[in-house]
Amino acid sequence: MATLGPSHYSPYPVAVYENILPPPPGKALLFTEVVDEEVAMREAAKAMLTRENPTIFPGPQVIYAWNEEAKEKARLIRELAEVLEAKIIPMVDYRPKYPKIDPEKEINPNHPNLTIWHNNIKACIFVGVHCHYANVALKIIRAETDCFTIALCSNAGHEDAMITLRDQHADELRKFIEIAKEVKKEVK
């Protein structure tokens, strides 16, 4: 299926070859557009509150209590899930688990589509997943499912997500929760 050429090294579409780049510092990415962080947060909350089976996928950086920020982020993620009425399905590690994975309890970056298909997830948030595995998983989800992906990244963001928020730490999560509360009042 692949033909010669740079992006064809990947079996899936690659956003960067469609001229979609990560957002600059202080900004966010909404599909192909660079927007203010608040606009992206509002759209992300809207997607989570209006689509079927919204789910948050916390990765190892927030699952494990390896520093004080991770503990605080875990608490905030829990709060965010309550506000967005979202399920939490963890990505505990990155070892491939096909076909033994229990898609109701776990997601794996090497075959994330299994969990999304099984639970009919139409909107999701990636948070605390190491960038190289988030890149893999987001490409697969983008190609294989119709799930709306939101990346809360503590580094430079992920162009393969539909909404990318970069430099997201505890303060930004608090801000997102407040915006989500406002959007919830509007849409519910």
Binding site: I63, Y64, A65, K71, A74, R78, P90
Partner: peptide
């Protein structure tokens, strides 16, 4: 190495598969 990197955050423990706990 800190052993803490293997400790699961209490806040998220209820969502973690038993084999990982």
């Amino acid at each position: 190495m800190s052993i803490n990197i293997f400790k699961i955050n209490e806040e998220l423990k209820e969502f973690i598969p038993q084999e990982v706990i």
